[in-house]
Design a protein around this nucleic acid. Structure first.
Lengths: 360, 360
DNA sequence: TTGTAGGCGTTATCAC
DNA sequence: GTGATAACGCCTACAA
């Protein structure tokens, strides 16, 4: 149906080999031949068949992205970051999101065999060390995102959750809010676990006398709302609430508003992620900024490195630092709530990104 | 490097043909043979090479998505909707976003040759009828999203921008706001053009005596902010402002707040798209809801239909209706601004979805 | 410089 | 039921 290299060869009165050479610029063809071939190819609207080419070339110029069924800005920004960098490198992106559970992920992973040169895997429940050992094709360059799997044949890239959490606790304590309650995320989420651990460590160091208050959430807005109500009912109300992600902070905010409390006047509030919504709620939310698109870009960079030197099992662990962005929800600014626009450029405190390679 | 069908055949002491039959359940093999082959395949962790298989099968079980370099919720939701439905059909998704201009899109389109069974194209400047005629592989099932290209070999799926705009104008006029100013989107965007045309038509019909006020924007928040300031300076201030998308409405809101105006007390405000931020802004934004994920799903459904009957040039035009969602920014509710949560479920007015097929 | 031919990994078509 | 073998479309030695 579609035109093949043979059609072009026949029409240009040369062999298929010459067509290939002319079109791929491999040299070894007369300028005249090349011109004629290109002319015919254009006229016939010939486009090489990707599958056929990659069968012999052993390269697909495509990378895969395996993602759990998540939605919202994190997904969007991550894909965007990966795709942007992939495109800059002339690579395409085969995404497989919206899968639930290990079985589903395994099927998706198998289907990528022979269609990708490398793969980025965002960790999710069920996708652990055993899963990867069993399902990750040997020798396929791969980068694990936000994962606690280590020592495998893949590179690992994580957010610096601990440092980010610590920076926010320091900020809150510095503002005089030592009695901080933490709203945690789902137990089966790696970032959520790290953020809670970071909170515990930071409190032990920065506010050792304050009670350790942690209420369970699951990263959803409604769980944040419930947590907010629970905290309002606590005997001494906490001075500040630090939610493990922004959506839960937004839920808390809702609960506080309903109760007639002023934020930050009566209670301070902080989140984690810096999703776009954080800027638009009233008051604008102070939060730990995760540069998600950059996370995607770095993952792609890491993967490209792995793809450049095949066979070398370059297991390594990398960490992307995160800032805190101070808006109004913790009481740092007292210049009125109407200037949300100017709060877009605010003081940020960077945690230093670290790279720890462990060749094996 | 990776294990192939030959390795399995040798190990199981059968021919490659039998391995293929056993693993694909094509029948024609003893139960014993099948069991042995499966056992060996599992032990060797054999996974068929996708490219090789699709070379002979003529099927990739993959669909492509060609998107402009857009970010934010529209992108995210669309991909999600497509992917969800694709996955339900056992199809994979090759995305190519973040490209600017026709040349870039052409390269992306070529690269999909032989890697996809069908393609969804979100229209963007430069991707017009001529572009598609020149770059769209003949016979490749394709669905055009938000496009004014018609009569080609592709199915077209659009948002019902005109009906949506009209419904919102009716809502505003019904509230007593006849003097409505419209903030338009970029001229090279199809949706933006349709929304402006819809506004003109609606005003001519529903508020013929009101002055027609249209100020230019480009879908960005900052352009909305500028438009908002411009409208505040107008001699008789408009009673309502209807922005062609939500981000511009958010920009307007900012301008109004800075000027000390109350929304909706002093001026009503409406948007288009119903991105998540619309709910979280103060006051919550009344807007025209576009069910983006459903748009993606419908596109995938349409594409699947086309893929089922190859060769049949089923050019058709489909329209996805949209609701208006009434929150607080137009003054419909007067039950206090604190109950944003309940405003999530609100009165919606549906425009009827229409499907107009034109077989040729 | 050009053409011929072999092979990439798989499925499909034959014989047996 | 099973096994050779010919495609699928392309690239790349090797030969001319």
């Amino acid at each position: 149906m579609a035109t093949t290299i043979k059609d072009v060869a026949r029409e240009a009165k040369v062999s298929v080999a010459s067509v290939s050479r002319a079109l791929n610029g491999s040299g070894g063809v007369t300028a005249a031949t090349e011109r004629r071939v290109r002319e015919v190819a254009a006229r016939l609207r010939y486009v090489p068949h990707g599958a056929a080419r990659s069968l012999i070339t052993r390269r697909t110029h495509t990378i895969g992205a395996l993602l759990p069924d998540l939605h919202g800005e994190f997904f969007s920004e991550l894909i965007r970051g990966i795709d942007l960098e992939a495109r800059a490198r002339g690579l395409h992106l085969l995404v497989s999101s919206s899968h639930n559970g290990a079985d589903d992920a395994a099927v998706a992973l198998r289907a990528m065999q022979g269609r990708v040169d490398g793969i980025v895997i965002l960790s999710s429940p069920g996708v652990d060390a055993d899963f990867l050992r069993a399902n990750l094709p040997e020798g396929l360059p791969s980068v694990l995102l936000n994962s606690d799997v280590q020592g495998g044949s893949a590179a690992v890239l994580n957010i610096d959750n601990v440092a980010g959490t610590c920076a926010m606790v320091r900020h809150l304590v510095g503002l005089g809010h030592a009695d901080i309650a933490f709203v945690s995320g789902p137990k089966d989420n790696f970032d959520a676990r790290q953020r809670e651990a970071g909170f515990r460590a930071a409190m032990a160091k920065l506010a050792p006398k304050a009670p350790l208050r942690i209420v369970a959430g699951n990263f959803s807005e409604s769980s944040g709302y419930l947590a907010g109500r629970e905290l309002l009912a606590a005997k001494p109300r906490p001075q500040a609430v630090f939610a493990a992600n922004d959506m839960m902070a937004v839920g808390c905010l809702q609960a506080f508003k309903e109760a007639g409390l002023a934020v930050p006047g009566d209670i301070a509030l902080a989140g984690f992620d810096d999703i776009p919504i954080a800027r638009y709620v009233t008051p604008p939310l102070s939060t730990v900024r995760v540069r998600i698109a950059e996370l995607g870009k770095n993952a792609m960079d890491l993967l490209a490195d792995l793809m450049d030197r095949p066979g070398v099992s370059a297991a390594s662990v990398h960490t992307l630092g995160c800032d805190i962005v101070v808006r109004e929800s913790c009481g740092a600014h007292r210049n009125g709530g109407a200037t949300a626009r100017t709060s877009k450029t605010t003081k940020t405190t960077k945690t230093r990104p670290t790279t720890h390679s462990s060749p094996r």
